[in-house]
Every structure is written in C-alpha cells, then in structure tokens.
Nucleic acid binder design. Sequence first.
DNA 1: GCTTGCCTTGACGTCCGCGTGAAGCTTTAG
DNA 2: CTAAAGCTTCACGCGGACGTCAAGGCAAGC
Lengths: 131, 131
Amino acid sequence: MRIGELAERVGTSTRALRHYESLGLLAARRTSNGYREYDEDDVRVVREIRTLVGIGFALEETRPFVECLRAGYETGDSCPASVAVYRRKIAEIDDCVASLAAVRERLSSAVSGGSLDGGVPEPLCAFTPLR
Amino acid sequence: MRIGELAERVGTSTRALRHYESLGLLAARRTSNGYREYDEDDVRVVREIRTLVGIGFALEETRPFVECLRAGYETGDSCPASVAVYRRKIAEIDDCVASLAAVRERLSSAVSGGSLDGGVPEPLCAFTPLR
DNA sequence: GCTTGCCTTGACGTCCGCGTGAAGCTTTAG
DNA sequence: CTAAAGCTTCACGCGGACGTCAAGGCAAGC
C-alpha cells in the first residue's frame, strides 16, 4: 500500500509517517515512480509507535520497540531493551507523581493561607505526556 | 540596581529578565544612559515569578500574581485571581496524577506479560512541570 | 588611551512532533 | 484530453522560555 492508505489505516497523517521515516523509525520500499510502498509489517510498526506516543513516549523512545518488531518478534515489547524502557518510564511516572504531590501540597497550603516560599527548584517531572 | 545585580540576587539571567519585561511582567525605569533601573519591589516581583515557574507555572499564569503585587498587596496570592489560578493548578495536578496512574497501570501490566493495546489517546497531562 | 566589564537592542537557535504550504511529478476517473 | 487526486522533496511555522551571538554604547581603573 502507499503512504496515504497507511496513514488512514493507522489513523495518522502522511506527514507524520514521513517524519518517522526521517528519524529512521520507518523504512519504505519505493516503486519505480518513487512512491513509498508499505506492507503489513509496516502497519504493525506504525501502530506500535502510535500506541506508545499516545501513552506519552517520545519518538526516540519507541525505537527499541520498533527494532524489536523489525527483528521479527511477535510484539514490540518482546525484547529486553523495550522492557527496560517500560521500567524506566514507570520510574519516571513515579518520580513525577511524587513531585506533583509535593507541589499539590504546597499549593493547597498556600490556598489555605500558607506562604509559598521559593522552595526547592527540583527537577520536577521528566515525564511529559502532553497531547 | 541594574539588571545584572537583579539577576544575580534572584538567581536568574539578564536574558530572562528582559524576557519577562517583553511579556509585560516586569517594568523598569531607565537611567539617563538607557540602563534599566530596578528597586526592591521588582526583586519581589521576580522572586514571585521564579517561585511559580519553579513550581511549574507558565509565565502567563504568573501574571495575576505579579499584578497583585503591583497593586500593593503584601503577597502575590492576596488577590482572588491568584487564588483562582492556584485552584486551577491543583485541579490540573489531580487530573495529571490520575492519567499518570492509568498509564502506570498499563505499563506495569505490559511488563508482566499483558498486551499494550492502543487504548484511549486521552488528553493526558496538561500540567507540564519540566525543568 | 586602553582595556575590562556591564549595559543596550535585535534576531536567530534550541527542542519536538508534526502542520502547512509550495512547486512539480504520476496516476486515475470521466 | 483534462481535471482531480495522490505522490514527491524542500522548507518554514508553532509554542515556551529563554540561550547565544552580534555590534555597539557607557563607566571606571591603570
């Protein structure tokens, strides 16, 4: 299939797919006229990327999962490198939740009359799951 | 005092101070040679900004606090508009923690053998306290 | 006079994940 | 045959909070 069909099937844009390719996350065969040509394996790769990004992973962080799929494994998280990323992410979430809890504390005490002194400018959240 | 001294006293850069000025968060008198001249009130304003930013506020969100100080109140959160921002932030944190907990769930179940299906691509965290 | 250091105003660079044209192919439908 | 759709690469835009030159003015010590 070509890029437009792939984009539609996984629910993203052709621009995003070309972006993934530019990062080396997605590789495409080319037809004689220069069009990109994809197969079902590519669908799985892109689905993996989209799922992880939807969760809050940076594109670079999806690389181990993509390589795992490319290596022929059933799922992107069949490889130790992927599991390691999972664990790192979980740790980041824990740190993030902890610092958010601390900030929440400071804010709610400030609301009830406390003073918001210029406390610790900690690293805060490294986990950034925006939309 | 001039911009360099102010920057040093509050622990930031002259570039940041000029940036705050460009956003209208900080106002400076000028000496005859064009140098910016600050007083103790400005120190308080910048400290307020830095504290809030350190907590994870966007610069725009510090505006009510700055205006509150400018209006002559003791602290930046003496005004209802500031307290409203506090409450909004607390709500954002709660939402953020909730979605992080959900993501954590999915990840830890994936680590222990589950499948990371492409679930809901929710808004996730709107609160982004990076460093 | 000269150097050093602080100040001034631009204005571009950074990081990320694409969005959004622009200009020009190819392929397909009518 | 032509128009529309889909494809190609190139390249700037965005949002946030500044960093980092660049090119020059001002004040003070030797």
